[in-house]
Amino acid sequence: MSLSLALERPLLAGFAGAVAMAAAMGFGRFFFTPVLPGMMSGIPLSAADAGLIAGGNFAGYLAGALLASQAWAAGRERWLALAGLSATALLLAAMAVTTALPLFILIRFLAGLASAFAMIFTSSIVLPYAVGRSAVQSVHFGGVGAGIAFSSVVAFLIQRAAGDAAHGWRLDWIGGAVIVLMAALFVARHLPKPVHGRQAAPEPPMAWTRPLVLLTLSYGLFGFGYVVTATFLVAIVRMAAAGPAVEAGAWLVTGLAAAFALFLWQPLARRLGLGVCYLLCLLLEAGGVFASVLLPPVSGALLGGLLLGLTFMTVTAYGLQIARALAPDSPRRALALMTAAFGTGQIVGPLVAGWATEWSGSFTLASVLAASVLLISAVLMMPVVRHA
């Protein structure tokens, strides 16, 4: 291998990972957000129905994350990553062929499982190439935000082309499926083979220190608090009648901010520490959730989307890093338990938000509740900061 190829390969791996993350997460997991308003008006669906569908997707993601953490997958990472992407494309298309709520929930559950496989196994391949190269990791995880941004443009263009058709939301899902399939073909060509080290020794049981307990509770509440805006932001804009451009713009701002968030927070993390940045992100995110429903529709949606994008990937990544540092003898167990806490919050959040919206007639109550939960998450984190 030439020197230039050796230098380029890590960045190529990071870029392949970014495309996979954009497809699996930006489309497979979060495309529901810009398509949801069309489904709510065209089928129609209630906010409670939408919460059930979103909860099903996050339950599938949690199941996929727990399955992927088991030893059976060793040696099959690349095949499973590509299978997850291919399944994501098929399941996006499947959303266009039904209007039955139970089938929507089942399809989104399976899509959550597939996106978890694609994300986890792609990351397990790419991240070894990021050792000593922070840019590779940032490019890889920045793919989530890039996918969210691109999905907002795709949904907007398809909806404009479809006009006021009651079934325009079906074209959204089909268009998303085509894009994910194209991404899967690119990833299949450029994703490198896994780098396998020695078999890891079994980890001892978790030592539940007070900081680790507080961090896990905080992380679970963060899952609840962020997911309400991440699921319903475009629907909030639609209910406020701010117009299609603001609907697309709010989600585009979210994605662009998320794509660069880890780059932007990195200098502060070096200076202030991961714990302080985690805490600041929770406070900023709570402010954004409040803003999305309490400010005028245009400024509220754009500010809410911006603060969501700047913070949710950073809290996700820094929370897991802090957990590994607090449980140095059992890092894999710590990550699994943090993922379980986060996943539980993600499942409960849309359900509560949907029911609260049905009861109150607007998304204000659900968003204020989510922002309050984020503030509680920040309070729980305060004693942990000095240990992070």
Rank of each mutant, 00 (worst) to 15 (best):
V315M: 05
G60E: 06
G168L: 00
S86I: 12
V293E: 00
A118T: 07
S367V: 02
D49K: 10
L365R: 04
A261H: 05
T209K: 08
A230K: 13
E203Y: 05
W265C: 02
T98H: 00
Y129Q: 13
V289H: 00
I148D: 07
Q199I: 14
L5P: 08
V19H: 08
E247W: 04
A366I: 06
S218A: 13
L310G: 09
A200V: 06
S115G: 14
L67C: 10
S4D: 15
P102D: 13
T344V: 12
A89N: 10
A341W: 04
Q70K: 14
V213C: 03
A93L: 09
F58W: 13
N57C: 08
L66W: 03
G220V: 03
M21D: 09
M313F: 02
G55C: 07
F186Q: 11
A250W: 01
R333D: 14
A63F: 14
A81Y: 06
L191H: 07
F312A: 14
G14V: 07
R76G: 07
S2H: 15
G197W: 00
A16N: 00
G223A: 04
I347Q: 07
G287M: 07
L91I: 10
V35F: 08
R238E: 14
F224Q: 07
A261F: 04
F260Y: 05
W173P: 05
P192K: 13
F109C: 11
S292K: 01
L306A: 15
A118E: 03
V379P: 03
S115F: 09
G132E: 01
G168D: 01
A20R: 00
A130Q: 06
L12Y: 03
S330I: 02
Q321F: 11
R133S: 04
L101V: 07
G64V: 11
G309V: 09
V276M: 08
A22N: 06
M1Q: 14
T254D: 00
F121H: 04
M119Y: 14
I107T: 13
G197F: 03
S360W: 02
A146D: 06
M338L: 15
A207I: 03
M381S: 05
R170T: 04
Q199Y: 13
A93R: 04
E247M: 13
K193I: 12
D49F: 12
M381Y: 00
H387E: 10
W359P: 05
E77V: 13
L11Q: 12
S115T: 15
V144F: 09
A356E: 10
L212V: 00
W359K: 13
I53S: 01
G243W: 01
G249S: 08
F117L: 14
P244T: 05
L306Y: 07
S292P: 10
M25G: 11
G42V: 07
T122S: 14
G223D: 03
G354K: 08
I107R: 15
N57T: 11
M1N: 15
S2D: 15
S377K: 02
T344E: 08
R270Q: 12
L157F: 09
A235I: 03
A269Y: 08
A378I: 02
S367Y: 01
L365A: 12
L369K: 01
P102V: 15
A93T: 05
A188L: 09
A130P: 09
G305M: 04
V253R: 09
A73W: 13
S372Q: 03
E77N: 12
A378Y: 08
L302Y: 01
G300L: 02
P211T: 10
